[in-house]
Design a protein around this nucleic acid. Structure first.
Lengths: 207, 207
DNA sequence: GTTTGTGAAACGATTCACAGCT
DNA sequence: AGCTGTGAATCGTTTCACAAAC
């Protein structure tokens, strides 16, 4: 299949959100124009994005809301739930464990680890913080789908290497470092400082 | 000046990180090739990105590390510190207040607000949580540069409208909703569920 | 000889526009 | 008549390649 761009995937996720809203509002069908308007894009973009995966609409009618939502969940791999492990029980890691939005969207945090003895044993949302020394053993015994890295930058590569050894194929990285992973592992970086700096650039340039 | 793309800004921020590392390592000069290698891009890309803002290198020599870092800080607007307000004292909001990485990079969280009486008065990193009812008055008295939205999705638009009324020109939004702001306000969305869904797509497609 | 700065070429993503289905 | 699906046209970004500077 053709290579799908990151921005396409992002938009598909957004379309799914909007379809779920339309469904709650009791809408039966929706046009590419309506979806586009809701998401700040164009109807042609919506149709192109969808056409990369098949032909889900009816000419003259639009798309059936529930049916298209199902197709998108299938495409995005959201037909099942996913198990997450969070490494790093600092402010960010514990916030992620407590964040209810993940569970609502099919992501279950099943374990949290830290290397600080003062933090090991601490309970967050009913989950006991475990020692990162046991990470490899625990993950072998109890595999997860996605690893979340919330440790300081200088420890991030060691942790991601360990996760990869445990067979994890998807990593969300909050540490501000460029991590190296094998080709068959998906890696996404979230770097809040970079986002803030995009804002300072806008503030400085446009004024 | 020509319109600068988001990805260019993102790369410039990364180059700045790498330059700071090179500087710590005592390097005097650096080539576009070295910067590119460190950041997973190409030397042509580095030179194009920089050339959008001026001509900072010497042919045959490369770029002076400290000098280029200064130029980048200037371009990104990082020659001064920025004041942030966090709205929403849930797990995420309080994690952001406590996050030391921001302060290190020039961003000071100077206030945190919530609408839950149980949370108002709570101290985080020495900062007393205030009532969101006072948000507008407090911000008029004590302006900030950047607003950070860490409230549930259904309250985000009300909050951003309030921030805009207070004259804030840059907003970082963690709520999973599409916000509307005037043209002269910079808005950046961080939606962790969208990032996770990019990973589930990769997990499902590439296996 | 080395490395920048930059037009030109190649590539990729978005938008246009319309034939074809309902 | 209304709206999708999709080639063709446009636009923006990345890569190439080389003349100019050191």
């Amino acid at each position: 299949m053709r290579r799908i761009s990151d921005s396409t995937i992002r938009r598909l996720s957004l379309y799914l959100r909007f379809l779920e809203e339309f469904e709650r509002d009791g809408e039966e069908t929706v046009s590419s124009e309506a979806l586009a308007h809701r998401g700040g894009t164009t109807s042609a973009q919506v149709r192109k994005d969808l056409s990369l995966f098949g032909s889900f609409g009816k000419r003259g009618l639009g798309y059936r809301v529930h049916e298209l939502a199902e197709h998108l969940r299938e495409i995005l791999g959201l037909s099942r739930r996913f198990r997450l492990v969070v490494v790093g029980a600092g402010a960010l890691g514990t916030a992620l464990v407590q964040h209810s939005g993940f569970r609502e969207r099919g992501f279950d945090v099943v374990a949290i680890f830290d290397n600080d003895p003062a933090k090991v044993g601490g309970k967050w949302d009913g989950l006991r913080t475990r020692d990162v020394a046991d990470l490899e053993r625990d993950l072998q015994a109890n595999p997860v789908d996605i690893g979340v890295i919330a440790v300081p930058g200088d420890q991030a590569q060691v942790i991601v290497d360990c996760l990869v050894r445990c067979g994890i194929k998807a990593v969300l990285n909050f540490a501000p470092s460029q991590l190296t992973v094998p080709d068959d592992v998906a890696l996404k970086n979230v770097n809040l400082s970079l986002d803030l700096e995009a804002l300072t650039f806008a503030l400085t340039a446009l004024q």
